[in-house]
Design a protein around this nucleic acid. Structure first.
Length: 274
DNA sequence: CCCAAGACCTGGCGGC
DNA sequence: TGCCGCCAGGTCTTGG
């Protein structure tokens, strides 16, 4: 579900709802997410703490609250602020109850998400957590990416999904960015010229920024911190548009699988020598 | 070493 | 209507 724009949208939406709130209690469903939820550690450190800040890094949310709470939403994770009276949803997994009666809740039907916690956060702990994580798209350098991919035979579409190379890009925005840059998703990453890397990086940042302005993309279940849908899906040029005409040339959008993931592209605009 | 495939989960959809 | 297979926004591990 959530790629960089969706996580960024949730981050911005949650900030005014949770900053300054004091955590009183924490409860979980007891079900396993990708990793066990560190309930004991959180209960030992968080009650009485105030939330000072929320930020995003890659597809993770970082909540500074004395300790550092790191939350990944997986495919179907959702965070929102509710009142204590509102019954928890079917896929409730964690809640952080505040002194004012409101609570931050985490729901996740597929349970691919993750909640990690550092009781005494240090820059070092955070650095270690993100040690293998690539730079934010906005911080990427085309020449450096080209150099890192010099021997990478994997298709560029698959490379974009590798968070160690560049952070935050998921399956939707990989296809959308490659279309905007007019680059064939099947092209080996090593085959991109420097000018193609520049074009691609610019396209990625444009697409991500436009999606953030739209509040992200809602395919089936993504909602923001206010439980409202995004609308960047109205602006998809290729994703989930197989068979429909390319908005640029009218050719039918094609669908294929790259590294096991559905990939959408215009065979003409993103063809051999476009 | 590199890369594709599989695994982890639940739910929704199309086909029969 | 119901059952079945397939598909889905993401990582992580396995194995060829």
């Amino acid at each position: 579900m959530p790629e960089l724009p969706e996580v960024e949208t949730i981050c911005r939406g949650l900030a005014p709802l949770i900053i300054g709130k004091t955590i009183v209690t924490i409860e979980t469903s007891g079900k396993l997410l990708r990793q066990p939820v560190p309930l004991d550690e959180m209960r030992a450190a968080l009650p009485g703490q105030t939330i000072n800040a929320i930020r995003r890094r890659a597809k993770y949310l970082l909540i500074e609250c004395g300790g550092l709470l790191i939350i990944h939403l997986g495919m179907t994770g959702n965070l929102g602020v509710f009142t204590a009276e509102q019954p928890p949803g079917k896929h409730f997994h964690a809640r952080f109850c505040f002194a004012d009666g409101q609570e931050l809740r985490y729901h996740d039907s597929r349970r691919f998400g993750r909640i990690a916690f550092f009781p005494a956060p240090s820059a070092t702990a955070e650095q270690q957590f993100f040690a293998a994580c690539g730079p934010e798209p906005v911080d990427c350098d085309a020449a450096l990416l080209a150099e890192k991919c010099r021997r990478l035979q994997t298709p560029i579409k698959a490379a974009l999904l590798n968070g160690a190379l560049i952070a935050g890009i998921g399956n939707i925005y990989a296809s959308e960015s490659l279309f905007r840059a007019r680059i064939d998703p099947k092209l080996a990453a090593s085959a991109l010229t420097l000018s193609e890397w520049r074009r691609l990086l610019a396209a990625i940042n444009e697409v991500l920024n436009e999606a953030i302005v739209c509040g992200g993309s809602t395919i089936s279940d993504y909602v923001n911190a206010e439980q409202k849908s995004g609308y960047f899906q109205m602006h998809f040029t290729v994703y989930d548009r197989a068979g429909q005409p390319c908005q640029h040339c009218g050719t039918a959008i094609a669908q294929t699988k790259i590294a096991g993931r559905s990939t959408f592209f215009c065979p003409k605009c993103q063809g051999e020598n476009s």
